[in-house]
Nucleic acid binder design. Structure first.
Length: 914
RNA sequence: GGACGCUUAGCUCAGUUGGUUCAGAGCGCCGCCCUUACAAGGCGGAGGUCGUAGGUUCGACCCCUACAGCGUCCACCA
């Protein structure tokens, strides 16, 4: 147990570093983050969106993890068995790239090492650097259950991947097919969409005449930017609604240079208004043409080799030519035959390899796919029917749209780092049968071919898309499908489904949607239920904001416009960074962020710190109250009852905002309560008793009550600012080693203590004080100058009750004498004001410049008259009186008379000065 | 091109059963205070026809339409 209760004298300025290190170590060492199935409690679970092992903490993580930690900590303090499961993602491409780049510095490629050696290198790298981000999350204060930390390439998670692959294959949902990938003709490898850099380029668009078969001298004219791919043309397409060409559909055209007939088909994909409205379809060399080809069952003719040179499917003249050389020759040949209608300038964006800048070639190759339609349907339903709720809700539309237009998922990747596809092929020997050509899909490495018995097997070279492991994350973290063998069966039952997913909207398709599908598909095998509500991976999804810089640009590494989170934590403190980002995070809106904004959080931390210092200093002076003070309402004065009322309504508001995931509102509510209600008013008010002539036991009771409220407020704040609240919480009472604020309960809002009358009465006192301060300010009366206050109260307001609060007035407005006068009387020379209909005078006697006061009153009278005129106009408006509801009219009339009275009183004061 | 979001003080943002004492907060600015928790603080003040133009309504920051500007996602660029 760190030395917390030993020293009660706190530094004047809160310094975060030491406190943070101390308490985080303490929490972790004592297992306070750890959760275990507990039948007496309800589970609350979050799985972390596993950061890439190549990643370092950026502002998006700060936001995302501050949110998750706040949610988990709130639930933990509300009596849930709260579990936040952390881990990392192996990030196939990113990680492989990092290691390859390192190799490149040694002048080597992965091919020099070979697959096994290369993978060893990656694992080494992972061991050395892959945990960086996990350590950084600790600095933020994340209360993750580190005993449960997982990695998507852990053996158990890899098992889950193979299991799912096999099951889907057996269900007929995984198949092998052709697909267009981004191919780099220089590196001879497929690269992912993310690795393609697109840029605008000035090029040409060629209009080529394809002779129509059967009608001489008539042509189909197609527009293309890539004439060299024409040898792979499989059709010409027009829009089915395009009347110009309706008569051609079903006919054929002659492919020039190749001398081959191709059909003319109709497809919605064609934009009738672009070009001629006729498109050549080249399924093997264009992604869109590929899909058109699928729909119309067209042949896929790949006319390039791996280096994008024309292959044997092209006329002999072109074979072996580079794609660009072939383009020139083909255009020249077409021109010679009079088959070029025209050539226009055309700007289009082309993709280049991020590594070698070679223009990417859409390339047809063999890939593995998951059929998505059957998986998507139930996943769409659970979001539409509210079994899973999105915050903000509008993302459900985006989700729906994607799910309804879903395409099959290409899951194979031409990489080495990742889960190798669990498929083997029989290389065969003399005994091979026809069946031997089938892929052998297996959970474990097969020893021999099941058909011919040959041991000569070769595993598929490719690995699986990284998302193929992450979509299982909510249950693979519990060692599914081997949970029984690993003793995790109870965990899976208890913690699944998870409750809240906190993630970025840009991965709604990659990750969120697929997790829903996986949960619904595989859930029944471990939940034992077909109820979607039991199988969904999470109940709520919170989509985070985008963090932008002060110019509105998205914060990113490449722009270099993001502050370094660890520097922020060092400079402002983790609590301040957390508070600031959560205070700024509106649900569904971006965050405009800059380092200086953390002053908000830092100043707040310091404010709380000093409030704690104040309480502790006073407790040390008065000594501990003999027994723990109880809120016996009879013995509380106005300030006590008021702060209690405010505390409970604050708690109520926070709980409501939390339910709606309005974390910025939560932050603002606790901030306003702490700073304004507690510090500005309550603490200042109790000073009048602490520094007065009260007996010691009264002072003790006052401090004790103040500490109780402080304790409650610390608990409300702890999930957002965990460190400073723990430090103070440990100081304000004697705690045992196993006590921690993070496992203390948040007090439930007691609505009986929310007292409207008390708040009204306090409002009156506060308004009187503010009014006096206002006069002081405007009249330039020094704050130190003592004044007397004369009040003329209406019968409803009891003078002797106000007299009770004289201490407050003295303390907060430097009123040294309070007296009352009856109706009709009036101090001779005084500044005056009306507060809630009651008249207030400050006799001036050399304090006030008469003309100043007159001008001040005049200004106020004019302002009130302005409002009054508005009310009168409204009440004189016939249609208002006729159509507005009675209550509204009554209210207006009431306001009218109040204003008239107040103005009259001020007017009299004004005249008295003249 | 499609979908969605945003526009309130110099800056960053609050503001739902539509009702002139709700036009507000923080930062910044101006003035006064180093008052025994806190100058990373306290008190007071100035500052906005709530993007533009219409419409609905007795009444619009709030509801509807159009437009402008900014932004996000998706699609497309043959």
């Amino acid at each position: 147990m760190p030395e917390a209760t030993e020293h009660n004298s706190l530094e004047k300025v809160y310094s975060s570093a030491e406190v943070e290190a101390k308490w985080y170590a303490h929490w972790e060492k004592n297992g306070f983050f750890h959760a275990t199935p507990n039948p007496d409690k309800q589970a609350y679970t979050i799985v972390i969106p596993p950061p890439n092992i190549t990643g370092v903490l950026h502002m998006g993580h700060i936001l995302n993890n501050s949110l998750q930690d706040a949610f988990v900590r709130y639930k933990r303090m509300m009596g849930y068995e709260a579990c936040w499961i952390p881990g990392t993602d192996h990030a196939g491409i990113a990680t492989q790239n990092v290691v390859e780049r390192a190799l490149m510095k040694e002048g080597k490629t992965r091919h020099d090492l070979g697959r096994d050696k290369f993978l060893e290198k990656v694992w080494e790298w992972r061991k050395q650097y892959g945990g960086v981000i996990i350590q950084q999350l600790r600095k933020l204060g994340s209360s993750c259950d580190w005993e449960r930390e997982k990695f998507t390439m852990d053996e158990t998670l890899s098992e889950a991947v193979r299991e799912v692959f096999v099951r889907l294959y057996e269900d007929g949902l995984i198949y092998r097919g052709k697909y267009i990938v981004n191919w780099c003709p220089k590196d001879h490898t497929a690269i992912s969409d993310d690795e393609v850099n697109y840029s605008e380029q000035q090029g040409k668009i060629y209009y080529i005449k394809y002779p129509l078969v059967g009608t001489p001298n008539e042509y189909a004219i197609v527009a293309t930017t890539r004439p060299e791919t024409m040898f792979g043309d499989a059709a010409i397409a027009v829009n089915p609604k395009d009347e110009r060409y309706a008569h051609l559909v079903g006919k054929a055209a002659m492919l020039p240079l190749a001398g081959r007939e191709i059909p003319i088909v109709a497809d919605d994909y064609v934009d009738a208004s672009f070009g001629t409205g006729m498109v050549k379809i080249t399924p093997a060399h264009d992604p869109n043409d590929f899909w058109v080809g699928q729909r119309h069952n067209l042949p896929q003719l790949n006319v390039f080799d791996v280096s994008a040179k024309l292959n044997e499917l092209t006329p002999e003249k072109y074979r072996g030519m580079d794609r660009y050389a072939a383009r020139k020759v083909a255009v020249a040949d077409l021109e010679a035959q009079g088959l070029i209608a025209k050539i226009d300038d055309h700007t289009n964006s082309i993709g280049r390899c991020y590594r070698c800048d070679t223009v990417i070639e859409p390339y047809l190759s063999d890939q593995w796919f998951v059929k998505m339609k059957p998986l998507a349907e139930p996943a769409l339903k659970v979001v539409e029917d509210g079994t899973i709720k999105f915050y903000p809700e509008r993302w459900t539309k985006v989700y729906q749209h994607w799910m309804l237009n879903i395409r099959d998922w290409c899951i194979s990747r031409q990489l080495w780092w990742g889960h190798r596809i669990p498929v083997w092929y029989c290389i065969g020997d003399d005994h091979c049968t026809l069946d031997c050509k089938k892929p052998i899909v297996s959970r474990t490495t097969p020893e021999k071919c099941p058909y011919c018995g040959s041991a000569n097997l070769r595993q598929d070279e490719d690995v699986l898309d990284t998302w193929f492991s992450s979509w299982l994350w909510p249950f693979s973290v519990h060692d599914w499908p081997q949970e029984g063998n690993h003793g995790k069966a109870a965990d899976l039952r208890y913690f699944y489904p998870t409750d809240t997913l906190v993630t970025a909207p840009e991965i709604i398709f990659f990750w969120v949607a697929r997790m829903v599908m996986a949960g619904l598909k595989f859930g029944p095998s471990f939940t034992g239920s077909n109820d979607p509500a039991k199988n969904i991976p999470f109940k709520e999804v919170y989509f985070t904001s985008i963090v932008r810089d002060d110019k509105g640009r998205k914060m990113s590494k490449s722009l270099g416009n993001s502050p370094e989170p660890l520097d922020l934590i060092a400079a402002y403190g983790a609590d301040a960074v957390r508070f600031t980002i959560l205070y700024l995070a509106p649900l569904g809106q971006d965050i405009i962020y800059s380092s200086e904004k953390n002053e908000l959080g830092r100043n707040f931390a310091n404010k709380i710190w000093n409030a704690g210092r104040f309480l502790l200093m006073n407790r040390d002076q008065t000594g501990e109250a003999p027994k723990k003070s109880e809120f016996n309402l009879d013995h509380l004065d106005l300030a006590d009852r008021w702060i209690l009322s405010r505390f409970h309504s604050t708690t109520q508001e926070i709980m409501a905002s939390l339910k709606d995931f309005e974390i910025n509102k939560v932050s603002r509510t606790i901030y306003d309560f702490f700073w304004h209600d507690y510090c500005d008013w309550y603490v200042e008010m109790i000073k009048s008793r602490l520094y007065g002539n009260e007996p010691l036991e009264v002072k003790q009771a006052v401090v004790s009550r103040a500490l109780d409220i402080f304790d409650g407020a610390l608990r409300l704040l702890h999930p957002i600012m965990p460190f400073i609240t723990e430090e103070l919480w440990q100081h304000i009472r004697t705690r045992t080693a196993d006590q921690t604020i993070m496992r203390a309960q948040i007090f439930e809002a007691d609505t009986r203590l929310i007292d409207k009358q008390v708040e009204d009465e306090m409002a009156f006192v506060q308004n009187v004080i503010e009014s006096i301060r206002n006069i002081r300010g405007e009249m330039n009366i020094a704050p130190s100058k003592e004044i007397s206050l004369v009040m003329k109260l209406s019968p409803a307001r009891h003078a002797n009750r106000l007299k009770q609060y004289e201490g407050y007035l003295q303390r907060l407005a430097r009123v040294t004498s309070l007296s009352f006068i009856s109706n009709g009387a009036r101090p001779k020379l005084a500044a005056s004001a009306v507060v809630q209909g009651e008249e207030l005078f400050i006799p001036l006697e050399g304090l006030i410049d008469l003309e100043f006061e007159k001008a001040r009153l005049k200004k106020e009278i004019d302002r009130l008259n302005g409002v009054l005129n508005g009310i009168r106009a409204k009440l004189n408006n016939e249609s208002f009186v006729a159509k507005a509801p009675k209550e509204v009219i009554e209210k207006e009339k009431e306001k009218q008379s109040i204003f008239e009275m107040n103005i009259e009183k001020l007017q009299k004061s004004y005249e008295a000065l003249s």
